[in-house]
Amino acid sequence: MADTRRALDSAFDRLTDGRPEHGDPGWAYWINEAQAHAQAGYCYVKLEDWTRAREHLRAALRLQDDEYSREGALRNALLATTYVRQDQPELDKALALGDQAVQTLTGQVTSARCVKHVRNLVGVLGPYRRTPAVRRFCNDTKDLIAT
């Protein structure tokens, strides 16, 4: 995990150093600060470092443009998962973020990748299905995640 953190820190340094003499590779046209935070957040989700994942995913949501609704749904679903998976789950926060993702995916955009992450969220909520709010969320997602 230390290697990943060093690599991410280096990437953020490069993104924000503002020195044009470095030049950006052509493939990096889509990278901005919001995307960098989203990618870092996803890395930390994969490493199960919920605190760092949350920090980066929150930053990505705060920095993203309004037109990025698909990315917002993805980030909300991932962020929701961090609240469920942490040692002391915060179901209310997870469900609020999950609801935002589902609302975006049922009303504005279609994305198989985002739906997959909502499906994963429903899966990690499994142990809490006896909680009425979790049961409601899982029922609300049935049609979406069945596709």
Rank of each mutant, 00 (worst) to 15 (best):
T82Y: 04
V122N: 09
C114S: 15
D87F: 14
A101D: 00
L78N: 03
G98H: 11
G107S: 11
G72Q: 15
Q100K: 15
A60L: 06
D99P: 00
L121I: 04
C114G: 15
R75F: 15
N76Q: 12
A77Q: 05
A80K: 01
R58P: 00
G72A: 15
C114W: 03
L105E: 04
R58N: 08
A60W: 07
L95P: 01
R52Q: 12
V115T: 13
E55L: 13
A80M: 05
T51W: 09
D66M: 09
D66K: 13
G107H: 10
V124P: 02
G123N: 14
L57M: 09
L78M: 12
G72N: 11
Q88S: 14
D66Y: 14
A77H: 06
N76G: 04
V118Q: 11
E55M: 13
D92F: 11
E67V: 03
R119S: 12
A59I: 01
L57T: 08
R119D: 14
G98W: 10
K116T: 14
C114H: 02
E55P: 00
V124E: 10
A94T: 02
N120K: 14
D66F: 14
E67Y: 12
R75A: 15
W50I: 05
L57R: 05
L97E: 05
R58I: 07
A73R: 09
L63M: 09
L121C: 08
A59V: 02
K93C: 00
V102Q: 05
K93A: 07
A112I: 10
V115S: 01
L125Q: 01
H117N: 08
Q108A: 09
R62L: 08
N76K: 11
A80Y: 09
D92S: 12
V124M: 13
E55V: 13
E90P: 00
E90H: 12
H56P: 01
L121Y: 04
V109W: 05
V109R: 09
V109L: 03
L78V: 04
E55C: 07
A73C: 09
C114V: 12
V84S: 05
D66T: 11
A77L: 04
N120P: 00
L97T: 07
V122L: 03
E90C: 02
A80L: 04
A73W: 11
T104D: 05
L79D: 01
L97P: 01
A96L: 14
T82D: 04
R113C: 00
T82W: 03
R113D: 04
L91P: 00
P127V: 04
G107C: 04
R119N: 11
R85T: 07
H56A: 04
D65K: 13
Q100P: 00
